[in-house]
Simulated scan of single mutants.
Amino acid sequence: MNACIKLGEVHGAKLGELLFFRQAGAAVLVTAVIASGPGLASIRTQRIGAHIRRAVVGLTGMVFVFSAIMTLPLAEATTLSFSTPIFATILGAIVLGEPTGWRRWAAVLTGFVGVVIVARPGGHALPPIGIAYGLIAAVTTATVFILLRQIGRTERAQTTVWWFSVLSLVPLSIVYAMTAQAHDATGWAILAATGLFGGAAQLAMTASLRYGSVSLVVPMDYSSLLWATVLGWWLFGTLPGDTTWIGAPIIVASGLYIVWREHLRRREITEAAISPE
């Protein structure tokens, strides 16, 4: 999907168009999956306000995610997205009051060191605005994680995905009407592929969390750096900079440690709850 976003930009697609097709593709796929599974009645909700808040924050985050991808090389944009668990840890401690020991705080600081290395302060290889887009995207995505933890207490994952896709199409339809333009066959194909790949990825992520634990699923996400590197070289002739090769492993290690500590904490809570007094 990220490669399609950059290809779309190369073929003249604007940010509003890419966002609209991304969400339209997701809405179509998610609706089809729900209709063939639990049925459309499962999208009923008593928490429309929570879904609206999630849509506002999620769409804001998506704007910055797409902007970072369009501004930075694929590998660097992907690497900055790996800082999301770092910000999620901070927000979890502040907003949800989750216990966060010194080990996870040390992992957070280590992760920020990796971000600084990738950002190359004082260097000129990466545009500062692109770095800003990537970090704001990570913060807003972490905020979405916090909202999803609260919504997930009462809502099915597919229901949440459906409401996000459909609600975000309301403002995006207005944006698309203002930015829509003619494209050649390749341009239309890229826009359609952006939506289909984005929707498929969202469904796959939802399914992965249903069949596997977070501690198992999240590390798989880091393999996206491999694909971003390969696609960046193949399609755009770019490879990660020297500092990215240094900073990326630090950020990944920080994120993996945070996930592992969270897994241990939840296992301890579960064992304490089921153990006899």
Rank of each mutant, 00 (worst) to 15 (best):
F20D: 00
H183Y: 09
A180G: 01
T79N: 06
L109D: 05
A189R: 03
L74F: 05
W102K: 15
I117F: 09
G199F: 03
A106T: 14
P249C: 04
A204E: 11
G122W: 09
R44L: 02
Y257E: 14
T143F: 12
G255R: 02
S168A: 14
L256H: 06
G198Q: 08
V161M: 07
R267E: 15
A228M: 04
I117Y: 04
A93F: 05
G198S: 12
S36W: 00
M178K: 13
R210G: 10
T71L: 01
M220D: 05
F197Q: 05
F236G: 08
A106D: 08
R104Y: 05
V28I: 15
R54K: 09
I48D: 04
A200C: 13
E98L: 02
G58S: 09
T243A: 14
L15N: 01
K14D: 10
A177V: 10
T229Q: 02
T179D: 11
L40M: 07
G247T: 04
L91F: 14
V33Y: 07
R149Q: 11
V230M: 13
V170H: 09
F87Y: 14
F87N: 04
A142H: 03
M70D: 03
L74V: 05
E262I: 05
Q46L: 11
V116M: 11
G114L: 07
Y133K: 07
S213G: 15
I151T: 12
S275F: 06
G123D: 12
A180N: 08
I131Q: 02
I269Q: 14
M220C: 09
A55Y: 04
G187N: 07
F87D: 02
A200Q: 07
L74A: 04
G39S: 00
T60F: 14
R210Q: 15
I151N: 10
L80T: 02
T89P: 03
R44S: 09
T71Y: 00
W234T: 13
V33H: 01
L80A: 02
R149G: 09
Y211A: 07
I5H: 06
F21W: 15
V108R: 03
